[in-house]
Nucleic acid binder design. Structure first.
Lengths: 157, 157
DNA sequence: ATAAAATAGTTTGAAATTCAAACTAAATTA
DNA sequence: TAATTTAGTTTGAATTTCAAACTATTTTAT
């Protein structure tokens, strides 16, 4: 029995969207990786790039906050932060209000990397919306809202 | 200067789509992982699940073909295939035409896992298209075609 | 026909990533 | 002010991954 609350999707359309989702995710990661290899940031892995992204330009989050965000243990985070500090992308900033806390920040080299990554994502989104006009946007946004609601549901149970 | 060939996206819309893409990808993986943990397939990791998916129900691909598809070395593949054979999800089938070749197949338990994973993806796509009608579909498909064209470009250079 | 080269997959040993648990230093609570 | 809690690091083990060496088989060249 099919779900009444949703469109009756043709089998081929289902396959199209599903394959596109899977393929796109996979390839974004791979392209990010290979762009890195060709860039001035060869000493950074894709996971380290995402750590730089999670640290953000100016928020100075705590180590624990970033670990939770990336679903990594604190130990793992310490170890990858060590690498990025050694390579000059990340700074540890001892918090003076609470001296147990380390806030994480990006160096200017780290911010450069952050912005390069951001630029790639801008292009990605731009291409996604290429040839659409204002009126089309709500529909695309709706699709993502749907998907995120579904993921909220799925994560709940 | 902005790119003339694309829509002039509002900053907030850009952020919406970008965050949605990043968030959705991240959460799909995490939910797949936690669904596995709660299912009868607790002994399978998310990477092993994707290996089962790559093997497919009935194609009997070669080891090398699957390794290339997943961008893994042959050695890595041998090792994860070993695990999945040991746990009863995957079979090695010696090719009688060319006895150097091993074709990979799923056991009935492997096919069960494959189908469970497929069902999750069906729900995902269904939710994505929830509330849309036939006329809306071309636009959503177009967005993905755009994105894949962009990724083709990006992978080329 | 047979020797040499190529190919498919496995084994090996090393590097990287990850985690949980023990640990240190600092802050909070009793 | 002693006990507890919290933030982050260290430690040791498990897992994943790779490249290179290896084995078995097939293809190519002589």
């Amino acid at each position: 029995m099919t779900d009444k609350a949703s469109v009756d999707i043709k089998r081929e359309d289902f396959k199209f969207i599903n394959d596109a989702l899977v393929d796109v995710f996979d390839r974004i990661l791979r392209i990010e990786e290979s762009e890195l290899r060709k860039s001035q940031f060869k000493d950074v892995t894709i996971n380290e790039l995402h750590l730089v992204h999670a640290i953000t330009l100016h928020e100075h989050k705590t180590t624990t906050a970033v670990a939770n965000e990336l679903h990594l243990s604190k130990g793992s985070l310490t170890s990858s932060v060590n690498t990025l500090v050694r390579r000059g992308y990340v700074m540890r900033i001892r918090n003076q209000q609470d001296r147990r806390v380390i806030n994480l920040g990006l160096t200017s080299k780290g911010r450069l990397l952050y912005r390069a990554h951001d630029a790639f994502h801008s292009q990605l989104v731009k291409s996604f919306l290429n040839g659409m006009d204002e009126d089309d946007l709500p529909l695309v946004k709706k699709a993502f809202v749907n998907l995120r609601n579904f993921l909220d549901e799925a994560a709940r149970d």
